[in-house]
Computed example of a mutant assay.
Amino acid sequence: MLVIFSKFLNLENEKQQRILNAALKEFARKGYDDASTIEIAKEAGISKGLLFHYFHTKRQLFLYLYDYSMKIIKTEYFDLININERDLFTKLRQVLLLKIELIHKLPWVFQFSAITTYTSSEEVRNDLESKKQEMESMGYEKIFENIDESKFQKRVDIEKTKNIIFWAIGGFANKIIEETKGSELTELDYDGMLEEFDAYLEILKKWAYTQ
Score class of each variant (00 low, 15 high):
residue 184 E to H: 13
residue 159 E to L: 02
residue 66 Y to T: 09
residue 134 E to F: 13
residue 147 I to R: 10
residue 69 S to H: 02
residue 171 G to I: 01
residue 195 E to L: 14
residue 114 A to V: 11
residue 13 N to S: 00
residue 145 E to G: 00
residue 61 L to S: 00
residue 99 K to L: 04
residue 78 F to R: 04
residue 169 I to A: 03
residue 120 S to W: 11
residue 33 D to M: 04
residue 126 N to L: 14
residue 107 P to M: 12
residue 118 Y to K: 05
residue 23 A to Q: 15
residue 155 R to S: 03
residue 170 G to H: 08
residue 170 G to D: 08
residue 203 I to N: 07
residue 3 V to Q: 09
residue 174 N to W: 03
residue 59 R to I: 15
residue 154 K to P: 05
residue 97 L to A: 08
residue 185 L to G: 02
residue 148 D to I: 15
residue 111 Q to Y: 11
residue 126 N to P: 04
residue 194 L to A: 03
residue 196 E to T: 06
residue 41 A to F: 06
residue 143 I to Q: 12
residue 99 K to N: 03
residue 200 Y to Q: 05
residue 1 M to C: 04
residue 55 F to W: 05
residue 24 L to Y: 15
residue 168 A to Y: 10
residue 43 E to V: 05
residue 194 L to I: 15
residue 136 E to M: 12
residue 192 G to I: 05
residue 5 F to A: 01
residue 113 S to C: 01
residue 128 L to E: 08
residue 30 K to R: 14
residue 120 S to I: 14
residue 25 K to C: 02
residue 104 H to I: 05
residue 109 V to A: 12
residue 198 D to G: 01
residue 41 A to C: 03
residue 109 V to Q: 13
residue 13 N to R: 08
residue 75 T to K: 12
residue 73 I to A: 03
residue 132 K to T: 15
residue 169 I to W: 00
residue 99 K to G: 12
residue 91 K to W: 14
residue 84 N to E: 14
residue 114 A to S: 13
residue 22 A to V: 06
residue 143 I to C: 02
residue 84 N to H: 11
residue 27 F to C: 04
residue 73 I to F: 07
residue 151 K to W: 07
residue 51 L to I: 03
residue 106 L to H: 07
residue 40 I to F: 10
residue 25 K to S: 04
residue 70 M to L: 07
residue 188 L to W: 12
residue 148 D to E: 13
residue 79 D to C: 07
residue 151 K to M: 13
residue 162 K to C: 00
residue 150 S to P: 05
residue 119 T to M: 15
residue 120 S to P: 01
residue 181 K to I: 09
residue 16 Q to D: 01
residue 22 A to H: 00
